[in-house]
Every structure is written in C-alpha cells, then in structure tokens.
Design a protein around this nucleic acid. Structure first.
Lengths: 338, 338
DNA sequence: CCGGTTCGCCGAATCGGTTCGACCTAGATC
DNA sequence: GATCTAGGTCGAACCGATTCGGCGAACCGG
C-alpha cells in the first residue's frame, strides 16, 4: 500500500503520483482522476516517516509539559488544550513530552532526534537548561513563560508582576493595608520558577508604593496546603485583611480556612488573584481575578512557532499579557479583624 | 550529522556504527569505543524518521482525546497524565490527537499515516466509528472505555454500572428512599456515551432491587449546570433526600444549590458519586465516592497496548475497575425534608 | 598443512516517499 | 517549416537509517 502500488495500478510512474498529490507539477486532469480513484479504492495515505525523511520536516511540534506527577493547574491545562487545538487547525500533530524528573530521555529524544519541527516549552524557570539545550540544538522553540534573559528567545507570557501589583493596588484602594501574597510552592520558587519570582517582585513593589504591610507565603499546589497556609497566616498575622495570590489550585483551601476562622468573604476578608477565568467563575464566591487569556496565548504560541519554523532567522517576538482585573465576589472594603 | 558522518570520522562502515549502537551484531570493544567517542563529540542521535521508515515502527503511540473545546474532567486529565507518564517510562513518545468536531483530519492522519504504532482511545461511545476505523485499519489500539460489543477489542474501563448501583445501595442502607441520579450532559448520553448509559442502567437496577423511587437527570459538565440542575430537582421532587452522580465537574455547583436551599450535607441531604480521588478529597465536605484508580488504569492501558503491538494476534484482554466506595463526608442517615 | 568455525567488518539493498533533469508531444511564433 | 515554449510524464537519485550476505583473518583440531 505504498506509492509504488498506486502508480502500478494507475499505470503511471511513482513521481506522477507524487505530483498529483502535491500539485507541485502539472498533471493532466484525466491522469489525476485515475490516480485519485486508485487512492480512494485502497484508502492510501503517504507514509509519514518516508515523507519526513525526504522533506527534512515532520509536520509535528513538541509540547514540553511539567511531569505528570505534579498535577497541572487549570491554567496549564488551558494551555495544553489550546496548543493542541491550534496545532490541529494548522494540520500539525503534537508530540507530548513530560520533562523534568525521570523523563530526561523523553525530552532528549524529542529535541535531538529530529522528531519535531519545533517545540513549545511550558513552565520555564528563570534559569532553564532546557532553553539552553534547545538553543544549542538549533531547533525552533517558543516559550510559554520566559527566562531571566528573555530577549533572545521567542515567548508568550503572563505578566504576573504587573497583575499582582494591580491586585495589591486594587486592595489598597479598598482600604486594605495588611496584605499577604500566597505564592506557589517553596520548592518551585526556590528552583527559580518565573511566575513565583515575578509575582513576588510585583507584590513588593506595590506594597512599597502604597506604603503597606506585606507578608509573603509559599504554598504547595493543592487545597490542603492552601488551607493550612492561610490558617498559619491568620494566626501569625492577625492584622491581615486581604490576600493576593497566583496559586489557583490552593484557592478552595484558602476559602475553607477563612470560613473556618469565621471570616466571611468579601465582608471580613478580601481575596484577589490571577487565575483561569473558568476557575474564577466557578468558585463560590466567584474570585475577583485577572483572567489569563489562555486560549489567546496558546494559539499565539503556536502561531509564533510556525513563523519561527518557516523563518528561523527572524527576530524574536514577545507577547506579555496583562489582562484587566475582573471584579467578582471576593473583594470589598477593608474591615479590621476582631 | 548522520550515521555516514560518524562512520567516516571513526573510519568504519555505516553498518558498523549501526551495529555498535544496536548491539545486534558483535563489534570489537576497541571499535565500539572509537565510534562512541565520535558520537559523543558530535552529540549524534539517529534520525527518527529514517529509523521509522526502515524498521516499520515509530516508537510512538497515539492518544486520542476529546476535543479541547469541551473541558476535560479531572478523571480524563488523570488518564492523560498517567498515559504520558507510563509511555515515557517505556521510551515511547505520545502523539496527541483531539478527535471529534472539526479535528477529523488529525485523527485520520494519526490512524492512517503510520505515524504511530498503536492508539489509546478515550471517551468511547457505545457505537463508535473511530473504533470501526481503527479496527479496519489494523492498527493496534486499546480503549479507555468500551463499546456495546466489548468482546472484540482490548480495553480498560470503569464499571460505572456496578459503582452507581453500589452508591444507591449504600444510600438505601442509610434509609434513603428517594434518590436522584445526576448524569453527564444530555447530548453526551444521547450520543451513546457509555458511562452515561451504564450508570443509568446500574441506577435503574438498584432502584428496582431496593424498591426505591428514582429520578434521572442529565446535567452539563460545569458547576453552573450542576447548580441549576439540583435547584430544579429539589423543586420538582421535594421528596428527594439523596443524589448519586458521575458528573465530577458539576459537583461544586450541586453543593452550592443544596447550601442555597438550606440543606446541610450530610445532615439533611446525602451525595455519593464516582470521581477522581484527588477531586473527592478536596471538596468541602469531602465526597463519599468510589475513587477511580486513574493511575492504575492509565498505566495498564499502555501496558496492554505494548503487548498488542508486540503481538497483534493475541486475544483481547479487558480490565473493569470497580473500586470500593470510600466513605467521606457526604452521606448520612436519611432525614425527611421539611 | 588444510578444512572448518568464528569474529569483525564491509558493501549493497531496502524502506517509501520527493525532486530534478530529461524527454516527448502539441501548439504558438516568426 | 524551423524554433521555441509549455504541458505531461518518466526514470533515477536521494533522504538516513537497518540488515543481510559475504569476505578476510585468526584460530582450531586432526
């Protein structure tokens, strides 16, 4: 069921079948139809490996995701879904590679075995050796996230620094003066996880600008951790009246801790954050948050990667998203705690 | 940077390099080291396409997921994560293909372009033409889920029928006599979505066995739908005191509807369901549910697929998981509603 | 000293496409 | 009527690996 078989049955040369399929040279209407008929009869489809070998490209992109062991956040899932979707729309397949931990081989295979034409890299650290490896391999890539030297790579990212800063300003406008930032896990931040550091920077900046009192806390990515984190914060800092957070996954736990402490949201305590819209809207009460446009960012990442593959020498482009804060049900005027 | 270049620099034939790498024929220790040195110096990795072409296999498996447009449930995500993980562990890459909707081409490419050695298919309908296509293509595949004729395919699945039946029996044991089943969306059920139908069958059976009064309701996969669905159920069936459900995504909305109706869980109203453990544990109160062992099922699916690829003629195997119900905080003795 | 193994390696064929040069024919141009 | 052009097709080379048959050298027993 290869191109030779088609050619034989249609009574033409293999090259003619190829041209009939690709249209790179004219083929008479009559011949084309004869070939087409045979192809449909045998349900023939060109062998992807053979084509990739000769053409030097695979029509496949790699998507490097965090390892499965650590649960993906709603936002990360949104990225994966839209990347797959956008790629399918462009007739590209997506090869998944869990990087980090024990799966080095997977990343290595994808990067170095010419299995893909380009890579989209998620969960980038400020210093990220995967970026280094990709760079020296010459494979086109786009980051969802960026390193500390973002100039010489192409990326899309969420402007956590600005967004957390805006959250703090919003809370300050409501009269809050003692605000905590609930960050992602301590390990992630220690490992140089970009959003964690940038959120902290934005928090520090805004707190200084408004002359507030800020508390920084790390929190693992699950509801249980959110609960105990906020319990601890409330105990150690009785003056707190508001939280800003980028930790989506822990939010339900944070809600629970506040409820258990007898604090009503937003009457007694306010929360503002950065989250996927879907998540924010489905919380109870719905979260006042900057809604990360995952769909747009994911699609844009694919688009940029396609451009990069087509013209690897083109200048690097960047997209920093800073969506406005959607006021929902979790922020209100400050009220001193009992 | 191909095998010829390595051969040249090492002063041997290309075939020798190949044998040194694969070990399929003996190569002297000295020659092997010389070759190895060149390989490491140039950071050479064999071209995946060329190898796939010659070997006739790609060392890649396809994972067919529901289209991104419909959000994946926690359980589905669990499957994706563990499949990717298990595949990576077996040195297999995973090609993602969103099927359904507008992405027919993606599925077609994966199935028919010999891009993968086998396929794992998720979200299977009772009658599923993707199964038909896979079957006639001769490509090995494993279902996570099964059709209405499950004998002649290999699959792993969750025994929704038994599990929902057990939920009902558990609720009946607690004295509940008026129970609703909250199913997945009406469209999904109408389209012949297996879990929906099997859950309904189990529900009907248990209700009959215990001589109960059962109400069946479909509900879209989001919190908002869960809220309005339960609101409606409470209004139309004031006698209800318990819900059994397989709709993970709608559960938070269901909680909210009960709370708004002034019904405390589990004091005034009980809920039992089938869900990913992670989700059940993180609800407030934690859900009494049969915890679907996604990790085991996903890993097993990969394992079965690998066997099937190795020996396509081997008999079909099946794994039907019926985990026990974990009693958490959402079921208690029946108490007639006001 | 000779026939038979074994070891280590080479050369060539092969997988299934794409692509380039060449050829033939028919119609247009002058 | 000779020359040119364009359309339509063919044959062969090529992409980068794997794999099979075979060949020379070393080694063995008789």
């Amino acid at each position: 069921m290869n191109i030779g078989e088609i050619a034989r049955r249609a009574g033409v040369a293999r090259s003619t079948v190829s041209y009939a399929l690709t249209g790179k040279r004219p083929v008479s209407e009559e011949t084309r139809q004869r070939i087409q008929a045979v192809i449909e009869e045998l349900n023939y489809r060109p062998n992807a490996a053979a084509r990739a070998l000769k053409e030097g490209r695979t029509r496949t992109i790699g998507l490097v995701i965090p390892p499965a062991s650590q649960r993906l956040t709603d936002m990360q899932l949104g990225f994966v879904a839209t990347v797959v979707d956008a790629a399918a729309r462009a007739d590209l397949d997506v090869l998944l590679s869990p990087s980090g931990g024990e799966h080095e081989r997977s990343f290595e295979r994808v990067v170095t075995g010419r299995r893909v034409d380009g890579v989209i890299l998620m969960e980038i650290r400020l210093e990220d050796d995967r970026v280094t490896r990709l760079r020296q391999s010459g494979l086109p890539f786009v980051g969802i996230g960026r390193t500390s030297h973002p100039e010489d790579m192409t990326w899309v990212d969420v402007d956590y620094e600005t967004l957390i800063s805006q959250c703090v300003h919003h809370l300050a406008d409501l009269g809050h003066r003692d605000i905590a930032l609930v960050n992602r896990s301590a390990e992630l931040v220690a490992a140089g996880y970009g959003p964690g550091h940038r959120a902290q920077a934005g928090f520090t900046r805004a707190v200084a600008q408004r002359d507030l009192h800020g508390v920084h806390a790390c929190c693992a990515d699950d509801a249980q951790a959110g609960l105990s984190c906020v319990e601890r914060l409330l105990a150690e800092h009785p003056e707190l009246t508001a939280i800003a957070t980028i930790n989506e996954t822990a939010i339900t736990g944070m809600y629970r801790a506040l409820a258990q402490a007898g604090l009503a949201v937003p009457k007694d305590f306010s929360i503002a954050g950065v989250a996927a819209r879907h998540l924010a809207e489905n919380l109870d009460p719905p979260l006042t948050s900057a809604d990360v446009p995952t769909i747009e960012l994911g699609a844009r990442a694919v688009e940029l990667l396609i451009q990069r593959i087509a013209d690897p020498g083109s200048p690097h482009r960047h997209l920093l998203a800073a969506p406005p804060i959607s006021l929902r049900g979790t922020t209100g005027p400050a009220r001193p705690r009992a």
